[in-house]
Amino acid sequence: MNSKSKTVNVSNLQFQLDVEDDWPPVGIESLPFRIDVDGYKLLKPPLFVKGLSVGDVIRPTLDGGGTVSSWSHQTRSGRTTLWLLRLDEPNNLEQVLEKLLELGCNVVKLPQYGCYSIDVPAEVKIGDIDAVLDELNPEFVACAFPSMRHAED
């Protein structure tokens, strides 16, 4: 059996963020993309860049310093990006994140700033996600959907 190894070309793109009143807590977000003939395919959910979901293919325009100055979608995946922001110390946030993982979601954490990005695969029902999120107290954790691709159940 003769198998050829296939090289996967992965590149991190740097996105300049608009920081107002010290938010977001970073000025640039670096995101991993797989480069293919159609463009750049996002591999992990963003913590601060709106409008992107895992599996989206974009065409970026880079400035002279190599930072993304603009981008457009080539294709949008069926995945949703959910952001959680810890406002106070809830006692059940880790349990909620575990339940989201059990449903098949992927989680990126920046706990020192209370930021969490959840990649919701297309096959996961948004109603199941909502049921888990209902366990969070909105006074302790804020939820946002910066890239909603699921239809309402």
Results as ranks from 00 to 15, higher is better:
66 G>A: 01
85 L>S: 01
117 S>W: 01
93 L>T: 04
118 I>K: 07
138 P>C: 07
93 L>F: 00
146 P>W: 01
44 K>L: 06
66 G>P: 08
43 L>R: 06
76 R>Q: 15
153 D>F: 08
101 L>D: 04
2 N>L: 10
101 L>N: 03
53 S>V: 01
151 A>C: 02
46 P>G: 01
110 L>W: 09
28 I>E: 06
105 C>D: 01
89 E>D: 13
3 S>P: 00
58 I>Y: 01
140 F>S: 09
153 D>I: 01
126 I>C: 03
119 D>C: 03
111 P>K: 06
15 F>C: 04
106 N>M: 10
78 G>E: 12
46 P>M: 05
45 P>Y: 02
12 N>Q: 04
80 T>G: 11
149 R>I: 10
39 G>N: 07
38 D>E: 15
149 R>V: 07
133 L>A: 03
120 V>I: 15
121 P>T: 10
28 I>N: 05
27 G>F: 11
55 G>V: 07
134 D>P: 00
97 L>I: 12
41 K>D: 06
99 K>V: 02
86 R>Y: 00
89 E>A: 09
145 F>D: 03
66 G>Q: 07
61 T>H: 10
80 T>L: 07
3 S>T: 12
118 I>H: 00
23 W>D: 05
121 P>R: 11
129 I>T: 10
107 V>P: 08
124 V>E: 06
82 L>K: 04
20 E>R: 15
126 I>E: 14
118 I>R: 01
19 V>N: 04
108 V>I: 13
129 I>Y: 08
77 S>K: 10
35 I>G: 00
40 Y>C: 10
95 Q>S: 14
96 V>D: 05
76 R>A: 03
16 Q>T: 11
56 D>F: 03
125 K>T: 08
10 V>M: 11
72 S>T: 15
2 N>K: 13
86 R>L: 10
2 N>D: 12
77 S>C: 07
42 L>N: 00
133 L>E: 09
93 L>I: 03
72 S>N: 11
62 L>I: 09
55 G>K: 05
132 V>E: 15
111 P>V: 08
96 V>K: 02
13 L>T: 02
74 Q>P: 04
81 T>E: 06
112 Q>Y: 08
72 S>H: 10
81 T>N: 14
144 A>P: 00
62 L>N: 13
56 D>R: 05
146 P>E: 02
17 L>Q: 13
11 S>W: 02
86 R>G: 11
100 L>Q: 08
102 E>M: 04
12 N>P: 00
137 N>S: 14
49 V>M: 06
33 F>S: 07
4 K>V: 11
70 S>G: 05
16 Q>K: 15
6 K>M: 14
122 A>S: 14
81 T>H: 06
